[in-house]
Design a protein around this nucleic acid. Structure first.
Lengths: 216, 216
DNA sequence: TGAATATTCGACTCATGAGTCGAATACGAG
DNA sequence: CTCGTATTCGACTCATGAGTCGAATATTCA
């Protein structure tokens, strides 16, 4: 129908122009994400990023439109990582609330511990230009809604217990979004362990009574 | 010993110069804290803050040394609010771990919901100049240690249960520090309610088994 | 090989916003 | 009232860092 397969010499090991272009873009993004996270968006200059890569500042502009554009891409990648993963989250008919919650947490932690996810939660949304801000906020909202849905479903099917899914979701996101502030993958604690502990913490808090009656 | 009491006309209702000076400083700080939190530190210009107060930019410099200085003061106030409160946190001999944890959470939430506390947790530490950064980080560390201590003591006296106080503390701080991101005191949910829910959530997660064994 | 195109960079421009200066004005004490 | 000091601000300076331009240089393909 369309073009026939590339069929190139040297197999796939040696990249062609387009692939190199894409690779370089990715490298810039990762470097930027890491630096933005570590030093803060505004504290990072494009000159620094360029220097770290041993290229010049104008070269960055060959691959991206602007500094904000780079940040936006980082956020977009992070959001996409959960929003439309190759393997979508199990639906209400495939697993119960508890199981779905656990799966969600696993994914979210994995995302948040990655360079782009870390960038997403560490550089606030306020650095982005207004138009992109909307997109990111929208993405975050979708993720938020997904968790709330899970909590509500879990309450219905009796596998989870919390009196306010919205508030509970916020607590959970808080705990998870704080992860990059203290967790460093090179430390003694592995991602698996942290995830397990977080899940344990959340599950324990959510399987028994989820609230105290306010005493005033 | 020293000077005799002021004994001024009009009582305390009308302020003298020094008091006015101090008041104006406070007003600037609050306004700045709110704006820094809402729009981000770097997105906020001193001109804006001045305009909001119907004063001029140079006037701000009559009260503060620099933009960072203002931010630093906000952080300092927030940290002081818990660190050395008039009524110090109960010690291990006055209350058990569980009770102390509850008290700690109440205070922390109260702090974090206030303008300065919100500013502390929303504007990262990276905006501050390096020297002040140290002070703030140190303050945060003290607060962190306080919670870890409580968790450890609670484990010893059997009123709390978590297998890693450090990690657990991080989860808790995460949940609390996220509060300003979604909680608005003018909404339908009161501070008391949120605090109660948070306490309930944390307590539930911490009184029963605090972890799952990692399955891989 | 050489023309066309993709990639890179040195050397700029330029807007922004923090911070300063010196002059004006308000205020309190004698 | 008048002097000295506290307070305020209009009109600057100035460093910084994002973003641009046009000229090299590299690469591909015929």
């Amino acid at each position: 129908m369309t073009k026939n397969a590339p069929k190139r010499a040297w197999g796939t090991a040696i990249q062609n122009r387009d692939e190199q272009f894409e690779m370089k873009r990715q490298v810039v993004l990762r470097t930027a994400a890491r630096t933005y996270s570590k030093r803060g968006f505004h504290e990072t200059t494009l000159a620094e990023i360029a220097e770290e890569l041993n290229i010049s500042k104008p070269t960055l502009y060959y691959y991206f439109r602007s500094k904000d554009d780079i940040l936006f891409e980082c956020h977009r990648i992070a959001i996409e990582a959960i929003t439309d993963d190759a393997t979508p989250l199990p639906g209400p008919d495939e697993a119960n609330g508890r199981e779905r919650l656990e799966e969600f947490l696993k994914r979210y932690v994995r995302m948040v511990v990655d360079d782009f996810g870390t960038c997403l939660v560490m550089t606030g949304v306020s650095a982005l230009e207004p138009e992109n801000q909307g997109t990111v906020v929208e993405g975050r909202r979708r993720i938020n809604d997904a968790l709330v849905d899970i909590l509500e479903d879990g309450r219905k099917d009796g596998t989870l217990q919390c009196d306010s899914p919205k508030v509970t979701a916020m607590f959970i996101f808080g705990a998870m979004n704080w992860l990059p502030q203290w967790y460093h993958s090179d430390g003694s604690l592995g991602v698996e362990e942290v995830t397990a502990q977080l899940i344990g913490f959340v599950m324990a808090g959510i399987e028994t009574s989820g609230s105290l009656s306010p005493d005033s």
